[in-house]
């Protein structure tokens, strides 16, 4: 079985803090990590590799050269091959341009049975690249996968809904997007880390390598444009009630009932 896992390197937004004085983002020391949902995607691929023979996992990412670390980590977790698609021409890609670029890379990889993507990236939260990639490749898709079984060429998956789940079946090749509930990602092994740097390589592909024209990627091929960005005006700070004893609590409830909030 040949598996492609698409990952993204993202800033750990859990670690992002706002400077209380200036109201700006404190980015210093914010680590870059493999996007959470993508780690679940990789873990599922690795579990298939643990379970079946002849499973080969290629991890694919589109990003700046620094994304090398995310791919090394994937290799350290157990992936077989890592590809970094990186080119200045890709800058400013929206989700559709990203999907088209990944399509070109997947076509160059050629042979695959399952493509795993994380549902969404924590720095964008769009959840669009997976389905757009599936469409561009003409593959059936199952998103929000929380449970997966493989039998021969058949894939059976649970797909999360807000109020339950669906049991869906399809055939390979297909694209699946994964969420946290699917599994618990493993750590890298220390041995894996040294292998990732000493024995394995990260292949670097640019726009030419994946035969994508400049009209098909980057800003030029992104249907959506950012017109404006602005900082949401934070709600003004309210009242800090002095103390933390019984009186303070009573005062709070008095104020709430005064305003008919309770």
């Amino acid at each position: 079985m040949k598996i492609v896992v698409c990952i993204k390197q993202v800033p750990d937004t859990n670690e992002v803090r706002i400077d209380p004085k200036t109201g700006t983002l404190i980015r210093e020391g914010v680590p870059s990590i493999i996007n959470h949902d993508d780690k679940n995607a990789l873990e599922e691929a690795l579990q298939l590799k643990d379970k079946y023979e002849d499973v080969h996992i290629t991890v694919l990412t589109m990003g700046p050269p620094q994304a090398d670390v995310a791919l090394r980590e994937s290799l350290a977790m157990g992936a077989d091959r890592a590809i970094l698609v990186s080119d200045r021409a890709f800058a400013g890609s929206d989700t559709w341009a990203t999907a088209k670029t990944l399509t070109a890379a997947v076509k160059k990889i050629g042979d695959y049975d399952i493509i795993f993507c994380g549902r969404q990236a924590i720095d964008g939260d769009t959840a669009q690249v997976g389905p757009q990639l599936a469409e561009d490749l003409g593959l059936p898709q199952i998103t929000y996968v929380t449970h997966l079984e493989i039998e021969g060429n058949k894939v059976k998956a649970h797909r999360a809904l807000e109020d339950g789940y669906e049991v869906l079946t399809t055939e390979m090749p297909c694209l699946l997007t994964t969420i946290k509930e699917l599994n618990e990602p493993r750590y890298s092994s220390v041995r894996g880390i040294f292998e990732a740097y000493k024995e394995k390589t990260v292949e670097m592909w640019n726009a030419k390598d994946i035969a994508i024209s400049l009209e098909e990627t980057g800003l030029n091929s992104s249907p959506t444009n950012v017109r404006q960005t602005f900082t949401p005006s934070p709600k003004g700070q309210g009242m800090i009630l002095e103390g933390n004893g019984r009186d303070t609590v009573s005062e709070l409830l008095f104020k709430l009932s005064e305003k008919h909030l309770i």
């Binding site: 559709w96 898709q141 249907p223």
Partner: peptide
């Protein structure tokens, strides 16, 4: 969120999430 990106891709149009 499963449907919209699939449609926008097939129509080759933009989608804002």
């Amino acid at each position: 969120r499963d449907l919209a990106p699939r449609i926008s891709a097939r129509l080759n149009t933009g989608l804002t999430a």
